[in-house]
Design a binder for these strands. Structure first.
Length: 386
DNA sequence: AAGTCTAAAATCC
DNA sequence: TGGATTTTAGACT
């Protein structure tokens, strides 16, 4: 993760006030009769699969133009995002299962960045049981919304209810909570002690030809079958490939993650990262790295907000990690949420880094379903070696 | 070579 | 209306 800081604080007391029409990105999912929500209108055409030409903007929606002056429109356009409702455009609204996934899995060839581990439970510190018939097939809904702004380089695809919340998400949530090894990692950054305010765990290894046994400081863990199957479906749907699965558990509203970008150094340029939500919904905030003064426009850039709900998937791609930071802020009433992310690490350091900050030195926790809490358990194995 | 926490201001309801 | 919640700036070893 790469965090950046605003070192350009002005000497005055001026504060950038959030616009009322900040109106949260999630607004595009709300009913249309919410008059406070105004749809962005124009999108540069060269990124919209074959539609339009040159710089001529395409009008996508214009259902409340009477309220907005032209100048106001243009300013708003610079500050906010553009939305292409791909589901509407291409009428994608399908249910599917992973029945059609072709075995064998995982792939064993060098074509895929996730190299087959020596065993299905390689380096697991505890037994993760095989998935039963109830956990397969998983039911998916495919209804992508493209969120793209060529000025601010926000580049997302949002799949609401990707994992069907009625048929699949709860079972998967329970299985992961019950069976994964969880950690509360402590580490130092710039001489300061950090207590990671969430539970974490990680599986997979980088795409280098380093054998699974070829890591000293950390022991890469095989991706459990349920996560492997999810990963594979996400790959199929998004036309991407991954070799890491990071899982976070935000146990209460006190658990959080600060604004950060996912570092490009070991993920390569413009990484695609898929993020899945299970359980209680949480706000997901995106803030431009130069939100106070965008270099292209000289204007402020609004923070965007999604309320990620049970089963949702959001794909971050393109320059999003370069130009934007994201966070899960503390929320007073929040309950347990699991977040699964899939990424592709392309250098050996990725493996060391991910195990360092998501497993750490190995203070293993297990979920106690009866007591509804995490318990630290003794484990001689598993931690990252110093 | 992975930030978190707190106080104060702003906003919500 | 004002207590609760969220947002923001800044400290921190």
């Amino acid at each position: 993760m790469k965090r950046s800081f605003d070192l350009t604080s002005s000497s005055t007391n001026t504060v950038t006030l959030p616009s009322k029409r900040q109106a949260s990105l999630a607004g595009f999912l709300k009913p249309k009769n919410d008059s406070t929500i105004r749809s962005p209108r124009k999108v540069k055409s060269d990124h919209v699969s074959g539609i339009g030409k040159e710089d001529k903007p395409i009008i996508l929606e214009d259902d409340d133009e009477d309220e907005v002056s032209k100048q106001e429109q243009e300013e708003e356009e610079l500050k906010s995002i553009s939305i292409i409702d791909k589901g509407k455009a291409k009428a994608i609204d399908t249910k599917s299962t992973d029945d059609d996934l072709v075995e064998p899995w995982p792939p064993s060839g060098i074509d895929h960045p996730y190299h087959k581990p020596p065993t299905k439970d390689y380096n697991h510190p505890i037994v993760i049981p095989p998935i039963n018939d109830e956990l397969k097939p998983i039911h998916f809904n495919l209804n992508p919304k493209v969120i793209y702004n060529p000025i601010t380089d926000l580049d997302l695809v949002y799949y609401k209810n990707f994992i069907d919340k009625n048929l699949s998400s709860k079972k998967i949530m329970d299985f992961l909570l019950d069976n994964l090894p969880w950690y509360r990692v402590k580490y130092k950054v710039r001489g300061i002690d950090i207590n990671t305010p969430r539970f974490t765990t990680v599986f997979g290894k980088d795409s280098t030809q380093t054998p699974w046994s070829g890591y000293q400081k950390c022991k890469p863990r095989a991706i459990p079958e349920i996560l492997e199957r999810l990963m594979r479906k996400v790959e199929q749907v998004t036309n991407s490939q991954f070799n890491f699965c990071l899982v976070n558990y935000y146990s209460t509203g006190e658990d959080s993650i600060s604004y950060h970008s996912d570092s490009e150094s070991f993920l390569g340029l413009n990484p695609t990262i898929a993020s899945l939500t299970l359980g209680y919904s949480r706000d997901f905030l995106l803030r431009h790295v130069n939100y106070k003064n965008h270099p292209k426009t000289g204007k402020s850039v609004n923070t965007e907000k999604f309320n990620l709900e049970d089963g949702d998937m959001i794909l971050m791609k393109g320059k999003t990690q370069h130009e934007w930071q994201h966070s899960i802020p503390k929320r007073s009433k929040a309950k347990g949420r699991i977040n699964i992310t899939f990424r592709k690490g392309i250098v050996k350091y990725a493996t060391e880094n991910y195990y360092n900050y998501n497993v750490g030195k190995g203070n293993l926790h297990k979920w106690n379903r009866e007591k509804q809490l995490m318990e630290e358990v003794d484990s001689s194995d598993g931690g990252v070696k110093t």
